[in-house]
Design a protein around this nucleic acid. Sequence first.
DNA 1: CATAGTTTTTGACAAAGTCCAAAACTCGGT
DNA 2: ACCGAGTTTTGGACTTTGTCAAAAACTATG
Lengths: 138, 138
Amino acid sequence: MRDPEATLRQHDLPVTAQRLAVLRAVSRHPHATADDLAESVRADIGTISRQSVYNVLNVLTDKGIIRRIQPADSPARFEDRIGDNHHHLVCRSCGRTEDVCCAVGEAPCLKAHSHHGFKIDEAEVIYWGTCPACQKKR
Amino acid sequence: MRDPEATLRQHDLPVTAQRLAVLRAVSRHPHATADDLAESVRADIGTISRQSVYNVLNVLTDKGIIRRIQPADSPARFEDRIGDNHHHLVCRSCGRTEDVCCAVGEAPCLKAHSHHGFKIDEAEVIYWGTCPACQKKR
DNA sequence: CATAGTTTTTGACAAAGTCCAAAACTCGGT
DNA sequence: ACCGAGTTTTGGACTTTGTCAAAAACTATG
């Protein structure tokens, strides 16, 4: 995130300390959960309510400034990196999440073609596996 | 599901009325939630505890007899149809879920190749969109 | 049919998030 | 620099989905 304050203004969002701090936290900790981010924000500006973290994350997600990812058996995670159509690789045992470019060049599996009359707007891919650390543990 | 009772015996699971009823319910209502299934089971055998529904669904999932799918913003859903590597199409507004065969023949995007040292065991694809009914509503 | 070992039930609990009303803040206009 | 309208933030209660634990009921083997 180049300039959090400018980003907020561009989207007609009043600039508040909480929003700036959450934006910085998401930027510094990609794939963090709301709780992780709350902690990070508190280390930064001292205090923030749980509800505000959710409020801010929801507004930023609605405006398309950040992206929410919600793998099974994990609280929602958030990221900065948007608009480049990447996917995610999630560790089944610890939840560690990494970005992966689409496996096959220009995303053939993302070609949304109609089925059952649905209007498809996105194809989400999650690769499930075990991260190096968890492979060692067992 | 051909023969629920035989299926249970094949997996060394004691046969109980609850398990049979849950199996039948999953079979009759693909992509139903635990709550939906509980209701369906009650219509069938009269009564079942909430916990038992979860117990049974967990055992059946662990044994690979049924599959659990967990789209974002939805409780878990269950299905009968396993082992044919199909994916899902989910309506963002009502949660309606349909099966779709892999978009590109033999699932190129499902080729699990290593990244970040992870050992990948599955690639999950969810197509997001709006179902015909919800397209009309808005 | 007895009994060892599972299942089922009941009720409390946990995690992640939302709802609501009151207090605090942002920012445009003066 | 200050006011005031409108938005955010806060704190607390609440909801949903699911798990834990112990007692009662059941399955299936001998």
